[in-house]
Amino acid sequence: MSAMVEIDRLSKAFGPIVAVDNISLTVKKGEVLGFLGPNGAGKTTTMRMLAGFLTPSSGTAKVCGHDVVEDPIAVKRVLGYMPEGAPAYDDMTVAAFLSFVAAVRGLEGADIQRRVHEISETVDLNGMLDRPIEYLSKGYKRRVGLAQTLLHDPPVLVLDEPTDGLDPNQKHQVRSLIKRMAAEKCIVISTHILEEVEAACTRAVIIGNGKLLADGTAEQLLARLPDHGAVTIECAAEHVDRVTASLGKVSTVGRVAQIDLGPGRNGVRAHPSSGQSIVEAVSSALRADNVPFAEVYRHRGSLDDVFRLITRGSDRAAA
């Protein structure tokens, strides 16, 4: 599949502050790329450059082959962009606003009405069409912002924090909508909610201080954690030594260490010698040696840990 978004050494400086620093990446059709980073990392600035709102200081980006610097209008045509907070003209009704965007997007006459109704069906805005936008709840407002990006059925969607400030049901709706559209489009979303990456994205990049720090699937990012794939065996204090001895016999187990699991709870943590899963091997070794244990579980780690690890600048693996 071809790359629909190609970001090439993109940088943006505001005076002395470098907001985006030499970022390169490509996104293909069918991918949902999650853009992660702490506040102020440069997510929004990158997206604004992609959408043709800001001009890059250096480097460029191509959307469906159109260059954002040389031909921003062509880029804007193939892009559906939702700015942060989904700003819309508050005094207009939903229908009037969507019709305005549809008209600017090149739709004409009866097509506008038809398309506005189709899209409000898709994002579940029915019954709200005649309401002024200022009276809508946050969730509906966000849906108006989303609807606006879909009117011209663009091949590429760039959504800046599409679920920010929504309740769990609304978040779920937006994510399922994104997943429904994913196969046909190339979607870039920014977020600082990490569960979103696992819920909706096929791939994630983490940026911090304007730099690209990590790029991969959720699973690949988790693998960066030092504890990733480690197995914890919880057992009584007197059995710790037997557990450790037993683990020593398993060939796939690397480092083994005694850990403190809290008051009155003892455990041993075994790290795999390489990337493979060791849960099976560990539990069968323990059973073979008849070592009593309370629990064996695999430490998966959370994206939150990855995020902290990477954005604190302590990610040695990223070099």
């Binding site: 604004r48 959408a51 043709g52 709102f53 209008i73 804007k76 045509r77 892009l79 962009y81 700015p83 942060e84 907070g85 700003p87 819309a88 003209y89 508050d90 965007v101 600017v104 997007r105 090149g106 606006q148």
Partner: peptide
Amino acid sequence: KSGTIEQLLTLPIT
């Protein structure tokens, strides 16, 4: 002030 400038200027217009 309301941020709609970003909405407006990312439509295909100059």
